[in-house]
Computed example of a mutant assay.
Amino acid sequence: MTSPYCCPNCKTNRSRFNIIDQVVNAVRLDPQSGEVIEDYNGIDPGPIHAKYQGPAKRVQCGSCGLIEDERTFIKFGENHK
């Protein structure tokens, strides 16, 4: 987080943000009850279970509440100095 941010929605906030660290927990659920049958934390869930490929961090604007990928705030901050 060494780049300046700017909110692409409100376009004025450059200083108040919430950094959201996304924690992935792969599980297998019972289709009827929704209960966790298996927790794959720390083990390989196998070839049928797709790995999470989203961002590790998301950012929320402290003014308007917009939540987006960190790159969106960085790019808008670089282009609107």
Rank of each mutant, 00 (worst) to 15 (best):
N25K: 12
G62V: 05
G54M: 09
Q22R: 14
V59C: 07
E35V: 09
S33T: 15
G46I: 03
D39W: 00
I19A: 10
D30Y: 04
E35K: 11
Q32L: 15
A56C: 11
E38L: 09
E68D: 15
L66M: 12
Q53W: 12
E70G: 03
E70V: 03
D21C: 09
R28L: 13
P47M: 01
D30H: 13
Y40N: 05
P45V: 05
Q60L: 04
E35I: 06
R58D: 07
G42A: 02
E38H: 12
Q60W: 04
L66N: 03
V59L: 14
I37E: 15
E70F: 03
E70W: 02
I20Y: 01
A26F: 08
D30L: 01
L29H: 00
G42C: 08
V36K: 09
D30I: 00
A56L: 11
I67H: 08
F73H: 02
E35L: 11
G54S: 11
K57P: 07
A26E: 10
A50Y: 06
E68M: 14
G34F: 10
T72Y: 03
D44K: 03
P45R: 04
G65F: 02
D39Y: 01
P45M: 09
E70Q: 12
C64N: 04
V24H: 09
Y52C: 08
A56Y: 13
P45W: 03
I20K: 05
P31L: 05
N25I: 07
H49T: 04
L29C: 05
I20E: 02
C61T: 02
N41H: 14
I19S: 12
S63R: 06
V36M: 11
Q32N: 07
I43M: 06
P45E: 05
P47D: 12
V23A: 01
E38C: 11
D44Y: 14
I43Q: 11
I37S: 07
D69Q: 14
K57Q: 14
E68S: 15
C61V: 04
G34V: 08
V27R: 08
S33N: 09
A50W: 08
Q60Y: 05
P45N: 07
P55Y: 13
D44R: 00
V36W: 00
D44H: 13
G65D: 03
N25D: 05
S33E: 12
H49Q: 02
E70D: 09
V24C: 06
V36S: 03
T72W: 02
G54P: 12
G62R: 01
E68R: 14
Q53H: 11
F73I: 04
Y52V: 05
N18L: 13
